[in-house]
Design a protein around this nucleic acid. Structure first.
Length: 254
DNA sequence: ATGGCAATAGAGTATTGA
């Protein structure tokens, strides 16, 4: 079973990339973030034609999440029941006995801004809800764009980024509250090449210079981590014409 | 220090992202 996550930065623009990527990487489950589509505009037919069922929760202009799956998608929950949030950032579902959470963590805009406070509150509420979900579903994976680089290995220039948004102590501590629940960063379970990232700025040739961050993650419960045999970031679609600024992350579950 | 790039809304340019 292969689980993947990808921030597509507008599914309207990126649908061709999504379909091409799925044709080349027929994962079992794919979580999408930043679909930026209201539900009435979601491309259900195209995704069904590619062999996937899909659940989605979107809004106009911003945010929006979706879960694609080859197997039935059960017990769908939109948003965190413990956090009243008009922004569509979370979708949960059970697929093949595994609880899948698709998460688009708030960006935070700038350290100590109102949006930064929202990001931290959002993450704290997520941790509370996750504790419940993990009790109900021992086999659990939470995949998505966390907008946090867990440590300096995940940053192209740690000195330049020290204390900055995505790398601040409070953000890393908030992510730590999730892993403290017993979740493991699938990527770090395995040997990885240095300077492997999942996001590169569109500006200043950042991708070509590999000036990136690893901010897209797959966290696995203990029971699921025990079944995980590989995790990798596919930087290939970042090279395609008019790409998303994020690359997909894939975990293989035995 | 600032903007740089992309997407959206909507018809100028502002907002957001990371």
């Amino acid at each position: 079973m292969k689980l993947a996550t990808w921030n597509v930065n507008s599914l309207k623009v990126r649908l061709p990339h999504l379909l091409q990527w799925l044709a080349e990487n027929p994962v079992d489950v794919l979580c999408l973030q930043e679909t930026k589509l209201t539900d009435d505009k979601f491309p259900v037919a195209e995704i069904n034609a590619a062999g996937y069922q899909v659940a989605f929760s979107g809004q106009k202009t911003y945010n929006g999440v979706a879960i694609l799956s080859k197997l039935p998608i059960l017990d769908v929950v939109r948003n965190n029941p413990r956090f009243d949030d008009p922004q569509q950032r979370i979708l949960a579902a059970t697929i093949d006995g595994v609880r899948i959470l698709c998460a688009y963590v708030p960006n935070g805009q700038a350290v100590d801004s109102d949006k930064y406070a929202y990001k931290l509150a959002w993450l704290a509420a997520l941790a509370e809800w996750l504790a419940d979900e993990m009790r109900s579903y021992p086999q659990l994976a939470i995949l998505g764009d966390y907008n946090i680089a867990p440590d300096d290995r995940d940053v192209h220039d740690p000195a330049e980024w020290a204390g900055q948004l995505h790398c601040s102590d409070k953000e890393r501590a908030a992510l730590g509250e999730l892993t403290a629940l017993g979740l493991t960063d699938a990527f770090r379970m395995f040997e990885q090449p240095d300077k492997t990232f999942s996001w590169w700025d569109y500006r200043q040739l950042a991708f070509r210079r590999n000036r990136g961050l690893r901010i897209d993650h797959i966290l696995l419960s203990q029971a699921l981590a025990a079944r995980c045999t590989a995790c990798a970031i596919d930087r290939n679609p970042r090279k395609w014409e008019q790409p998303s600024d994020h690359a997909p992350v894939i975990a293989t579950i035995g």
